[in-house]
């Protein structure tokens, strides 16, 4: 399941979506709005995305992950719009036969999503300032190489 939504994420539902009799392990990662970054205080985050490309990129990442690990099921849900403190902005769930693959695949998917999927967040700081987060080193301007998944990762 891939979803980009304005609604709050039902994280347990995301976990349930990867359950299978074939899987002995399920991992759920949930990312949420953190109050402090160093000594700067966040009031809320606001997310924006390039919807069609984001969904296609997430699907490509899942397809690529499926060549690296034997994934039984996988779901990625990202929230856009305003996400308040403590609220979930992303949920990634992976199920596999054994736990090691679930942990690795979920971590890899989250890491790659953060550099390849066109979704952006804007900080509203307690000072009243706003700031788009455009970290250096993200956006890899080359297509994903399916023949050599290690390259550039």
């Amino acid at each position: 399941m891939i979803s980009i939504t304005n609604e709050s994420i039902d994280t347990l539902k995301v976990l349930e979506s990867v359950k299978s009799d074939l899987a002995g392990a399920s991992v759920l990662f949930v990312g949420s709005t953190r109050q402090f970054t160093g000594d700067k205080e966040t009031v809320r985050l606001e997310y924006e995305c390039y919807q069609t490309m984001a969904v296609e990129k997430i699907q490509q990442l899942i397809d690529l992950a499926s060549t690296k690990w034997e994934i039984t099921r996988c779901s990625v849900v990202h929230r856009i719009g305003i996400v308040g403190l403590g609220e979930s902005s992303i949920a990634v769930a992976v199920s596999t036969a054994h736990r090691k693959a679930s942990f690795e695949a979920a971590a890899w998917l989250v890491d790659e999503l953060k550099i390849q999927v066109p979704i952006w967040k804007k900080e509203l700081w307690a000072s009243g300032e706003t700031e788009w987060v455009h970290p250096s080193g993200t956006v890899r301007p080359i297509p994903i190489n399916f023949d050599n998944p290690q390259e550039g990762s």
């Binding site: 390039y50 999927v117 066109p118 952006w120 788009w132 455009h134 301007p141």
Partner: peptide
Amino acid sequence: DDNVICEHDEIALIPPVSGG
């Protein structure tokens, strides 16, 4: 940078991303 743009391509400028 060397990709050629065609008339009906869907084009977007993608600033560094920050999802998650």
